[in-house]
Computed example of a mutant assay.
Amino acid sequence: MFKLNDIIRPNVLKMKPYSSARDEFKGSANVFLDANENNLGSLAGNNYNRYPDPHQKKLKTRIAEVKGVKPGQIFLGNGSDEAIDLLFRMVCRPGQDSMLHLPPTYGMYEVSANLNDVALQTVQLTEDFQVPVEEVLLNVKPTTKIIFICSPNNPTGNLIEQGGIEDILRAFKGLVVIDEAYIDFADARSWTSRLHEFPNLVVLQTFSKAWGMAGLRLGLAFASEELVSVLDKIKPPYNINEATQELALQALEREEALKDMIEEIVQERELLMEALLSMPVVEHVYPSDANFILVKVGNANEVYNYLLDNGIVVRNRSYLPGCEGCIRISVGTLEENQILLKALVEF
């Protein structure tokens, strides 16, 4: 039986959160002299002289409507990287506890673990980039507090099979974090629909990919209200700036435009994959449920440098275990994709 308090660090359970001026003030007022702001205004305009809502109440309410969850099940971070870091701080004792990840996968899990002095446990994905469930569970130790599963996985692009994730959620007594940064491009239901089933489930999403807001840095973590309340307790008080909150609210009113963009990207992905298969330099194109494609080529370093010399930037993933000889290509516009294909033909 999973109990959140059993895995939260004792010092986190005891700590009191920072109380900001906006936390202490309740009700309405016309004169604000509590937060040492510049009351003359802001050189940036738009009332940016005032601190933003530390709890992002309006934004969470709107996101909850779109995602079909409760506002209390949403944590908003400065990118999903902030949520990843805070999850480590919440449950992992530095120098004592460990996490388990499944390479090839998103590199920030490892970076954040190292930063927080959390030991790395590694179980490699299978040849078809799926989770070897039995091996994962055999490697779980009493010190293992978090398992990270990226689905669709970065850099491989594929969804992780649902049944295997279910088995891990049921058997593991720590947090299972499913990173769904690319879920909008996949024909699959989000794990947010199953939060009520698994108290140890955390789902990460982002506004950086499908929503096209990478420059604004807005990440999401969905979990039980109990878990989210702990993340809120340990986050910086004003971690989401006012401009990001305002622009995200505007974006959330344009769901139809989002659907059109996703449809166009998926169509371009399929056309790009088909074209890549006919290239002599391409040895294999991996299936993708994301907005990028993992491609095995004859000489990844050579191809990468050649494309770079021609003003085309892709990602060289050939040094990652299981991705030998591979480059990762983001799906561009029709014009950008044609420029890429032309360069590969001429390689």
Rank of each mutant, 00 (worst) to 15 (best):
C92T: 06
M90N: 08
V66Y: 06
P71G: 14
A83M: 07
K60F: 01
D117Q: 15
N114Y: 08
P104Y: 00
H101W: 10
S80V: 09
P104R: 03
K67P: 12
V91P: 09
P71R: 00
P54V: 15
V91E: 15
D53G: 06
V66E: 08
A64D: 04
E82L: 15
I84H: 05
R50G: 08
K58W: 03
L76G: 13
M99G: 12
V118W: 00
P94K: 06
G107H: 08
P104V: 03
D53R: 13
Y51H: 14
L120C: 11
Q73A: 04
R50I: 13
R93K: 15
P54C: 04
V118H: 01
T105F: 02
E110T: 05
K70H: 12
V118G: 02
Y106C: 05
A83F: 04
L86C: 10
N116R: 01
A113Y: 00
Y109N: 09
I74P: 06
N49V: 02
G107Y: 03
G68C: 09
K67A: 13
M90E: 07
A113W: 01
E82T: 11
F75Y: 14
V66S: 01
L120G: 06
A113C: 01
P54Y: 05
G68S: 11
V118Y: 00
P71N: 06
E65F: 09
L86F: 09
H101N: 07
A83V: 13
P54D: 05
R89F: 07
E82R: 11
I63P: 11
M108H: 06
C92Y: 03
T105N: 02
E65C: 07
Q121K: 02
N78R: 15
N116E: 00
E110N: 13
R89H: 05
R93A: 15
Q121R: 00
V111P: 01
A83W: 04
Y106V: 04
G72W: 00
P54N: 14
L76V: 08
G77M: 01
D81M: 10
H55W: 08
L76Q: 04
G79I: 09
G72D: 14
F88Y: 15
V111D: 02
D81W: 09
L102H: 03
T61L: 13
V66D: 10
P71V: 07
P71H: 05
G68K: 05
V66F: 11
I84F: 11
E110R: 04
M108V: 04
G72R: 04
L120A: 06
M90I: 10
L120S: 09
F88D: 02
E82M: 14
R50A: 08
V69F: 10
L102N: 05
D53S: 11
M99W: 06
L100W: 02
N116Q: 02
N116I: 00
A113P: 02
E65H: 13
S112P: 09
R93S: 15
D53F: 12
Y109G: 01
P94D: 04
D81C: 06
P103H: 02
A64C: 11
H55P: 00
G77D: 02
M108D: 01
R50T: 12
T105H: 03
Y106E: 06
N78D: 12
N116P: 12
